[in-house]
Amino acid sequence: MAARGATYRTPFKLGVFVIAMFGFGFALVPLYNVFCEITGLNGKTGVVDESVVARYEFDPDREIVVEFMTSLNQELNWEFLPEVAKMKVHPGKVYTVNFYARNLTDRDVTGQAIPSVAPNVASRYFSKTECFCFTQQLFQAGEGRDMPVSFVINPKLPAHVTTITLSYTFFDAGQKVALQ
C-alpha cells in the first residue's frame, strides 16, 4: 500500500488550493479596479498631476463639449447641481468648474460623490487634477458650499469624440445599505 501516503497528500494539496481560490475571489476586487483604472473601463477617470499635464500639447483648434450631470442616490435629501450645464473646452488645458451642494436635512451628513464619464472610450483621456470626489465631504445640517473640480482632456482623445459627459452621483457615505 505505497499509495496510502499519496492518498492523503492529494487532499492536502487540494485543500490549500481551495483556500487560495477563496482568497483569489477577494483579490478579484482590487484586480478589477486596477484593470479598470488602467484601461479606463467602467467610466473610471484617471488622476494626473501637474507634471503630466505640462507635457500635454495645447490644441486650440479642437473644441470639445463637456456636459455636467448630477444625480442623488435615492433617499438623500440634498441639493446638488453643476454651476454650468456644459462648457466648451480645448484639449491640453486645465479647466475648473464648480458644483454646488447643500444638505437639506437637519443633521450632519458625510457625502461621497462617485464620478462616471461617458462615452466609455473617453474616460481614459479625461483626467482630474483636483476633485471633491477624491474625499468624503462633511456637510453640517443645512450647510451649502461650492465644490471645485479641475480637469484636463488628453489631446490624444480619439477624433470621433466631440462630447464628453461627466456625471456625479452623490451618496450618503455614513449610511449603511438600506435595510427593509
Binding site: F17, I19, M21, F22, G25, L28, V29, V177
Partner: peptide, 19 residues
Amino acid sequence: LIATMPVLAGAVTMLLTDK
C-alpha cells in the same frame, strides 16, 4: 469545482458583509 466554488463562497461572503 474546487477552483470556482471558493470564488462563489467569496462573492456571497462579500454580499453578507456588505449587508
